[in-house]
Design a protein around this nucleic acid. Structure first.
Length: 217
DNA sequence: ACATTAAGTGATT
DNA sequence: AATCACTTAATGT
């Protein structure tokens, strides 16, 4: 276990990894399993060992908004902020595919910040790394660029499951981008005309060029 | 064959 | 971009 964490989180010092192992639980998540919902107090946060998790903003009225994915070797910036301010979670965390995570109790956060410099820099990097992504998201919401949001969503999802074929309905996408099915259907149709993807029932196949293009950005 | 669910379309706000 | 009303297509029982 210890070797595994060290391998996946190489930046963390040995003594810290030892404490992680002593205080945390390993949890296996099935595809689409909900780890945390919004609203509940954050007593733990996840560090991803394998697979990927998707993070959604969620209000009380059943509105959701996709934010980002996290992968092996990462932790959730939003969960960390909730930990430190002792506020209820504002996000929902769902396994994008079968995943393994280490569930770490939040009370260790403060202690580790002063005790382990590698922890402090890990947390800092987690924030920095996420910031650009969130800015992009803010931009596309602010300027109502639903088509860009949709493309980013498809690309992110594709990367998260390491496949170019997504098995998802237009309705599901609409729900996670907080819009309506009709809008998604029409935008997807446009993207299909542009040759960026092909559509099927419960299926969206991204063109190879689409992935490459996005990766170069 | 029938019901249900997913997706496409035109018109309106 | 959202909503409505409707059609068409695919899938399940």
């Amino acid at each position: 276990m210890k070797e595994k964490i060290s391998h996946i989180f190489p930046a963390l010092e040995e003594a810290l990894v030892t404490e992680i192992v002593q205080n945390s639980n390993l949890k296996k998540l099935d595809k689409e399993e909900i780890l945390f919902s919004a609203g509940h107090k954050v007593s733990d946060f996840p560090m991803v060992l394998s697979g990927s998790l998707r993070i959604l903003r969620e209000d009380g009225e059943g509105n959701e908004h996709y934010l980002y994915h996290i992968f092996a070797g990462e932790t959730c910036a939003m969960s960390l902020t909730c930990c430190m301010s002792n506020k209820p979670s504002k996000v929902k965390i769902i396994a994008e595919e079968d995943s393994e995570v280490v569930i770490v109790p939040t009370f260790l956060m403060d202690l580790w910040m002063t005790k382990f410099h590698t922890w402090k820099s890990f947390v800092t990097r987690t924030y920095n790394f996420r910031f650009d992504d969130l800015l992009e998201t803010i931009d596309s919401i602010a300027f109502s660029n639903m088509d860009e949001r949709l493309l980013k969503y498809l690309y992110d999802k594709s990367r998260a499951i390491a496949a170019s074929t997504l098995n998802i309905t237009h309705q599901d996408i609409a729900y996670e981008l907080n819009t309506t099915r009709v809008v998604i259907s029409r935008l997807l149709k446009q993207l299909e005309k542009k040759g960026l993807l092909t559509l099927g029932r419960n299926k969206i196949e991204l063109a190879k060029g689409t992935l490459a293009k996005r990766l170069n950005n």
